[in-house]
Simulated assay, not measured.
Amino acid sequence: MNHALAIIFTTLSLLKMAVAEEEFCSAPLIVDSGSNSKHLYWKVTNPTLSPSHLQENSLSGLPPYDAERFIFVVQGAVTLTNVSGISHKLTVDSYAYLPPNVEHSLKCDGSATLVVFERRHASLENQPTEQIVGSTDQQPLLETPGEVFQLRKLIPTSIPYDFNIHIMDFQPGEYLNVKEVHYNQHGLLLLEGQGIYRLGDSWYPVQAGDAIWMAPFVPQWYAALGKSRSRYLLYKDVNRNPL
């Protein structure tokens, strides 16, 4: 069974959805002016995803029925509140997973830019998922035998969860040691740095702000270029029969 994946860049009070007809969606070239005041992922949000007319004090809506939601904060901060009134402040590099049909709201006092993944949950009987709130730096580095990149997983790998979100870091010059082929469909957003990405027989120069979708069984490979770390946020189907 195929499940549609929506990758939504959300600046609260304005919703922008990026839908790629092709496999690769490129951000516009951004010139670094050398300012020290830029936030961590400024290339992802500047200038196309953070227009100056955005209003503050915005409140989110809910996803469609039976859709689970994952939120990752790229810029600013938001407050997540559930139906019990329990609130969590999410700042840059913080994230939350919301099970399907769970009442919640997201509110920001100033502008905030989020990456939001939503998909219809492939539920299993007596295997419910739970709300998760965390941050990237709280997650342990996992072993990557035969590889040099650093890997963190933001969602539990247990059976109830039908997708995962990875944070993958490459230092300049590092690359995947093998050309990978997966039955999973993938989607990623490059948060930092630049590099070269292979999809099938095509090669794409990529930079922070670029989004890539990888169909099942498409050969893929990445190498980090430039002078700074590459980091990308990766979506991956797991724990379900791909058919």
Rank of each mutant, 00 (worst) to 15 (best):
T136L: 12
D93V: 01
E125N: 06
Y183E: 01
A211I: 13
H166I: 03
N57E: 10
W213I: 07
P128H: 04
V31N: 01
L243M: 02
D210I: 08
L199W: 05
N36R: 14
V83D: 09
L14Y: 12
M214T: 09
S202R: 11
F117L: 01
V148D: 07
S26N: 08
I132Q: 12
S33P: 01
S94T: 00
P51C: 02
K38W: 04
T144F: 07
N2V: 13
V102P: 04
P156K: 11
P99S: 08
S135N: 10
P216S: 04
Y161E: 10
W221R: 06
Y95A: 05
I212N: 10
L124F: 11
D109E: 15
I155T: 13
D93A: 10
V115I: 02
D66I: 12
V181E: 09
H182C: 06
S58V: 04
F170H: 09
L151D: 08
V178S: 01
P64Q: 10
Q127C: 13
S33T: 12
F24A: 08
I155P: 10
S202Y: 11
K89D: 10
M17F: 00
S94W: 09
A27L: 03
H186I: 05
E23S: 04
T10S: 13
H104K: 06
E103K: 15
S123W: 13
M168W: 01
T157N: 05
A224R: 08
E103I: 14
K16Q: 13
P47G: 14
L188T: 10
N36W: 03
H186Y: 03
L141W: 10
Y97S: 04
T157A: 14
N241E: 03
E68L: 06
T79G: 05
L62A: 04
F70K: 07
H182Y: 06
T144Q: 12
T129K: 03
L90S: 08
L14R: 04
I212C: 14
A211T: 10
Q75L: 11
L124K: 14
G76P: 11
R229A: 00
L49Q: 05
K89A: 09
I8H: 14
L49A: 08
P64E: 05
V116M: 13
Q207K: 11
L90T: 07
N2E: 06
A20G: 11
Q139N: 07
E23Y: 10
L151E: 12
W221L: 06
D237P: 02
I155M: 03
L62V: 12
N36D: 15
A27P: 08
L80R: 01
T157G: 15
E103M: 12
H186M: 08
L154F: 06
H121C: 11
N82L: 02
H166R: 00
P63S: 11
G85A: 14
S33K: 00
N57L: 08
L15G: 03
L29N: 00
A122Y: 09
G85M: 15
P47Y: 03
N239S: 10
S202V: 15
G187L: 06
K89F: 00
S33D: 14
K153L: 15
Q171I: 02
P216A: 04
L188D: 04
W213S: 08
Y161I: 15
H39Y: 04
V148E: 10
I8S: 15
G146P: 13
I7T: 11
